[in-house]
Structure formats: C-alpha cells, structure tokens
C-alpha cells in the first residue's frame, strides 16, 4: 500500500516545493546599508535546493553508518542492501550539494570554488563515500563485500566530524567570515522546511526503489 502511494506523494510534494521556490512569497531578502530590505532576486533561492540536498546527503550517510553497524552485529543481508542503497543516493546528493554550492559561490563571491569549511567538508564527504563505493566494487564475493564495506562505512562516518573540525581551523585564517547575504526568517523558513520534507520523501522513494532492485538482483542470482 505504502509503496504504491509513496511515488505519488513524492511527486506532488516535489511539485509544490518547486512551485514554492519560485513563487514571490519565498523571495530571500538582503539588507541595504540603510537597513531597508530588498529582494535579492532568484539566485539565492538555490538555497532551497542546496540545504535540503545537504540534509539528505547527511541523512543517507548516517543510514549507511547505522546499517553498517547493524550488519556487523546481525549479519543479515538486508542491512547490507540498506547501506549500499543509501550510499549510492548519498553520493549523488552530495555531488549535487557541491554543484549547487559552486553555482551559488560563483554568483555570490565571483568564484566557482571557495575553500570554506562547509564546501570542503562536503567535498571530503563525497570523496569518502565515493571510496566506499570503490570498496564495494573491488570485492566480488557478496559476504566479504558486505563485511568490508560495513567496516569502511563505519570508519568513513567517524571521520566526518573530525574532518569538519580540522577544515574549520584550516580555512579560518585564509578567509574572512562568510557574510550572510540574506537572513532567512518568516515565510522562507517554512518553504525551506517544506523543501526538506520534499527531498526527504524523494530520498525515501529512491531508497525503496533501490532496495527493490537489490532484492530482484539477488533473486535473479539465486535463480541462475
């Protein structure tokens, strides 16, 4: 039942979310030097994509971490499928975070890439989980693949906060504090929250589809 409804709920929510992003009410305002707010135009609205994508990427990697631990404890194939599905979606979403971040940086600061902690941490995350997928593809035997990938899934996730802290002290002396172009308050906050909901639903849908594929490929393997 839920599986039948989920794609439709996701579709409707996503459409509403995208409509909201471009509707006038969700304009993001900046402040003139004399304190009068003004509409920053369409570009800052990339935030409505960027922040939910980042949230989903972190969520996906957290799911990899938890499923990896559960796999090592229970040795059930299910948890491995959880981890691998989530990791693939996470890598894609994390890549999109980087791209939307770069587009925003080009608009706001005039350069594509800027070594601020947020972007750098996202890059390290992306690299770590691309490496996770490398581990998976390097080991052919299913049981060993699941076990080694689970170990690496745990190691990679633990590295993330540490990377963030080290990037913070590394990037700090090189860059002035990043100015907030638009303070977000009022209606845009709800738009952002709605977008986070929409992207989380999208993640859930992709995840359940990927799980189906995993299950079917396993069945096909056993049938052979």
């Amino acid at each position: 039942m839920l599986k039948k409804v989920l794609p439709w709920i996701t579709l409707v929510t996503m459409v509403i979310a995208i409509y909201l992003i471009f509707s006038p009410v969700s304009a993001i305002y900046g402040l003139c030097p004399d304190g009068i707010p003004f509409d920053l135009g369409y570009n800052p609205r990339i935030l409505y994509f960027h922040a939910p994508l980042a949230w989903v990427a972190y969520l996906a990697f957290f799911v990899v971490f938890v499923s990896s631990i559960l796999y090592l404890r229970t040795r059930e194939q299910k948890w491995d499928a959880f981890a691998s599905s989530s990791a693939e979606i996470g890598v894609i979403f994390c890549g999109l975070v980087l791209i939307t971040g770069m587009v925003w940086a080009k608009y706001a600061w005039g350069i594509w890439w800027i070594w601020i902690p947020q972007l750098t941490t996202a890059l390290i995350l992306w690299l770590s989980y691309a490496a996770y997928l490398m581990v998976r593809s390097a080991v052919p035997e299913p049981e060993r693949k699941a076990r080694l990938a689970a170990v690496f899934g745990i190691v990679a996730f633990i590295g993330v906060p540490l990377s963030h802290f080290s990037v913070m002290i590394w990037a700090h002396p090189l860059h002035p504090p990043v100015a907030r172009v638009g303070a977000i308050e009022g209606f845009p906050v709800y738009v952002l929250l709605f977008n986070i909901l929409a992207f989380t639903l999208l993640y859930t849908y992709l995840f359940s589809t990927k799980m189906d594929i995993e299950r079917m490929s396993e069945e096909a393997q056993q049938g052979l």
Binding site: S128, A131, Y132, M134, V135, F152, A156, G159, L162, S166
Partner: peptide, 22 residues
C-alpha cells in the same frame, strides 16, 4: 581491509586518503 582485494595497491590510497585528511 584491502589485503584480500585483487587491486589492493590501487584501492588502499583511494580509501585511505579521504579518511586521513583530518
């Protein structure tokens, strides 16, 4: 972790560097 992987000399740097970046 990489000891039983065929392309271990290749895999180890790829998976080690992201984790030891801090």
């Amino acid at each position: 972790l990489t000891v039983n992987v065929r392309a271990r000399e290749l895999l180890l740097p790829v998976i080690l560097f992201p984790v030891i970046l801090p």
